[in-house]
């Protein structure tokens, strides 16, 4: 009798992108892929799961009972509740923690800084579980949406930001909590003839401030996760400088597959709970 192939899918349905990861029956990462978050959401999640093969047959209907035998799908991210064919769902807090823990295998207490499209999180973990967490409150400042919005206003592609920030020669700051008011500060600074490099640096600096004021980090290790930090390496450097300034014993690492930590965590959850 043929052995049924086991595949554990993690779907991180974020505000900007849908990230998909598959684990094999031993928990190894088989594939990872992403696409823009589009609507109807379920259809696009299904397309993301199918990938280039376009084979939707394992994910064909509404209910999880219609998923092909051996396949298990766990959803996370802000759209997790809208993926009705998923077998289970967990919050991005738990998913990021599991994703980081699987890949980094840390024994001592550590904190995760994750910056997503519409929220930022600090997760404190010890004894192999989430001890506490904080999410940005009330507004988008300090999130990917904030960087995206101001990048749009400045007409600077996101991919160019890190290099521009490295070219700063002045430490400007943006003070506002509010994305719109920050935009106004940026325009005013531009009107005063400020260099774009210094403005991008100030924008990153503002993100660091907004995240660091969410909650005090009390661990000696910090792991960075999430797409924003994977693609804005100068932002990571600025976080590291700030964390080391506060704690001389600080060790910081960028998680492998940082953008996929949530999806990996979801898939791992499915793998471990089966």
């Amino acid at each position: 009798m043929a052995v049924t192939e086991e595949i554990y899918w993690g779907v991180d349905c974020g505000s900007s992108e849908i990230k998909v990861v598959a684990l094999d029956g031993q928990g190894n990462i088989l594939l990872k892929r992403k696409q823009k978050t589009l609507f109807p959401l379920q259809d696009h999640v299904r397309l993301a799961l199918a990938g280039e093969s376009g084979d939707l047959s394992p994910f064909r209907n509404e209910g999880s009972h219609d998923i092909k035998e051996g396949h298990k799908i766990i959803a996370t991210g802000y759209g997790r509740k809208y993926i009705r064919f998923a077998h289970d769902a967990l919050t991005e807090i738990k998913a990021h923690f599991i994703g980081v823990q699987k890949q980094c295998d840390l024994k001592d207490a550590y904190s995760i800084i994750d910056i997503g499209g519409q929220d930022s999180k600090i997760i404190a973990a010890c004894n192999n579980k989430v001890d506490q967490f904080a999410i940005n409150r009330k507004c988008a400042a300090g999130t990917g949406a904030y960087i995206e919005e101001l990048g749009h206003r400045l007409e600077v592609p996101l991919k160019d930001m890190t290099e521009l920030a490295r070219g700063n020669d002045k430490e400007l700051s943006l003070n506002s909590f509010c994305t719109v008011f920050s935009g106004q500060e940026v325009i005013k600074t531009l009107m005063n003839g400020e260099r774009i490099e210094n403005i991008i640096y100030a924008l990153y600096s503002s993100v660091v401030k907004r995240v660091m004021e969410m909650t005090a980090i009390t661990t000696d290790m910090v792991v960075f996760s999430g797409g924003v930090l994977e693609y804005h390496s100068e932002l990571v450097n600025m976080f590291i400088r700030k964390l080391e300034e506060n704690n001389a014993n600080m060790t910081c690492i960028l998680s492998p597959n940082a953008q996929y930590c949530g999806a990996i965590g979801a898939a791992e959850y499915g793998f471990k709970s089966s």
Binding site: Y78, K81, L90, T91, E92, I93, K94, D119, K129, V130, D131, Q132, F133, I135
Partner: peptide, 14 residues
């Protein structure tokens, strides 16, 4: 709604 749901559910998970 979204942020509160995530916070409450993550809290209950924790």
């Amino acid at each position: 709604d979204e942020q509160s749901t995530t916070l409450i559910e993550a809290f209950l998970e924790t």
